[in-house]
Each structure stands twice: as structure tokens, then as C-alpha cells.
């Protein structure tokens, strides 16, 4: 089997600053291989988003090791973390976070104009159109988010996540604000990325969507366990 892209071992995250420190993640182990899709399910407050934050280098664990692509990045300085976020990760959030004053293409290009290397305008445009095409909305490139439906906006957000050809897609309840049909289409778009070797970690409440992933993990009180399909 290929080398895992993500290896978490004993990841613990304790929330301080309150009366009593609260353990959000308690010794989480997780291994994700290239092209693999993993669903993380759990109740609200179970630590799903915190886990995703640590996976996406938004946050640092208090204990445990995080090996990304064979490199221990548990204590990575922010500057290098920003570089890795740009080169390895694509993010899709429940709210789409599209900038209203920019067109769909400009919103996607945001991930390319981030100070991590420079692409000439022509190449940038080609990459953006390719990403929009992957999610089936290349024809909406010049539209602003205010003139798009929720599903279209989420596709733009997915295109933004895909435009740098990430190794890992992290999606935090991407269908939470969408109807069932549109949500299914969005999941399709995310899964299609795994066919190109991109790993997908999906945080969701939706059991149907979780069932479509290769693996399903359950997070209960900060402890991650694998769900075996019955």
C-alpha cells in the first residue's frame, strides 16, 4: 500500500482559558491514504471541527504527532504552515465564504494569489477555468456570488479548493446549508476529486453522505473510532 498522506497519532487538544480545561480531542489516531475518502461524524461539540482545524494546520495539537506526507509537522511555525496549506490542502466550509465583490473566477483565483509563488495572468485564468469546469460551472465564471444559487456558490468554493491541485480536501459540513439534491451534487463533485488521487476528509452530520465515503469515523467526546459497515 502507498505511504499515508496523513498520520495522526495520539492527538490531544485541550481547551484552556475557561474555569476547567476541557479535553476536545483525546488521543486521536487517524491515517489517510492518497485518494481515500474519510467521513467524520459526530454530534455537535464532539470535536469534529477542531480535528479538521488540526488537520488543516489552523490549530496545533497539545499532544501527539502529526505526520503529513512523511514529514512530522506537529510543531510547525506559522510561516511554513501557510505554505503547506497552500500546497497540500483545499478547504470547503459550510458557509461558502465567497467574496461578493469578486466574480466566481476571481474568487477561485484567490487561492492562486496568496503570495505562495506567482502565476502569470494567462496561466492563472486557465487554471481557474479548469477548476470551474471540474465542478461543472465554467459558464458562470464571470458571475458574482450574489447572482448564484447556494449549490453554485458551493461549487465555486470547491473549485477554489481544487484550483491548486491539493493532495487533501478538507470539507467541514459542505452540504449543511444546501437542500438534499444540491448537497448530493456537491458530494459528487468532492468525490470526483478523489478519483484524481486527492484525499478527502469530510465532516458531516448526514449519514447518507458519510456512507458514500470510503471510511466513516465517529467522534464521541473527543475519541475517534472507526465505524465498521454492517
Amino acid at each position: 500500500m502507498t505511504q499515508p498522506i496523513i498520520e495522526l497519532a495520539g492527538i490531544t487538544r485541550i481547551l484552556k482559558g475557561q474555569e476547567e480545561p476541557r479535553t476536545i480531542l483525546d488521543g486521536v489516531d487517524l491515517t489517510v491514504h492518497p485518494g481515500q475518502s474519510v467521513a467524520i461524524v459526530g454530534r455537535s461539540g464532539s470535536g469534529k471541527s477542531t480535528l479538521l482545524s488540526i488537520l488543516g494546520l489552523f490549530d496545533r495539537p497539545d499532544q501527539g504527532t502529526y505526520v503529513l506526507d512523511g514529514q512530522d509537522i506537529s510543531r510547525l511555525p506559522e510561516r511554513k504552515a501557510a505554505k503547506l496549506r497552500s500546497s497540500h490542502f483545499g478547504f470547503v466550509f459550510q458557509r461558502f465564504f465567497l467574496l461578493k465583490h469578486l466574480t466566481a473566477a476571481q474568487n477561485v483565483a484567490m487561492a492562486l494569489v496568496n503570495g505562495q509563488g506567482w502565476l502569470p495572468r494567462r496561466q492563472r485564468r486557465a487554471r481557474v477555468l479548469e477548476a470551474l469546469d471540474q465542478v461543472g460551472i465554467a459558464h458562470l465564471a464571470k458571475n458574482r456570488p450574489t447572482r448564484m444559487s447556494g449549490g453554485e456558490q458551493q461549487r465555486v468554493a470547491i473549485a477554489r479548493a481544487l484550483v491548486r491541485d491539493p493532495r487533501i480536501l478538507l470539507a467541514d459540513e459542505p452540504t449543511g446549508a444546501l437542500d438534499t439534491e444540491t448537497g448530493t451534487a456537491v458530494i459528487e463533485a468532492l468525490l470526483s476529486a478523489t478519483h484524481r488521487g486527492c484525499s478527502l476528509v469530510l465532516v458531516t452530520h448526514d449519514r447518507d453522505h458519510a456512507a458514500r465515503m470510503g471510511r466513516t469515523m465517529s467522534l464521541v467526546d473527543g475519541v475517534l473510532t472507526e465505524r465498521v459497515p454492517v
Binding site: 489552523f58 501557510a82 496549506r85 497552500s86
Partner: peptide
Amino acid sequence: RRAVGTPR
């Protein structure tokens, strides 16, 4: 922007 890799 920080999430997509823009440094501080």
C-alpha cells in the same frame, strides 16, 4: 485568505 495559504 489565511486558510488558503496567505501568510500573515
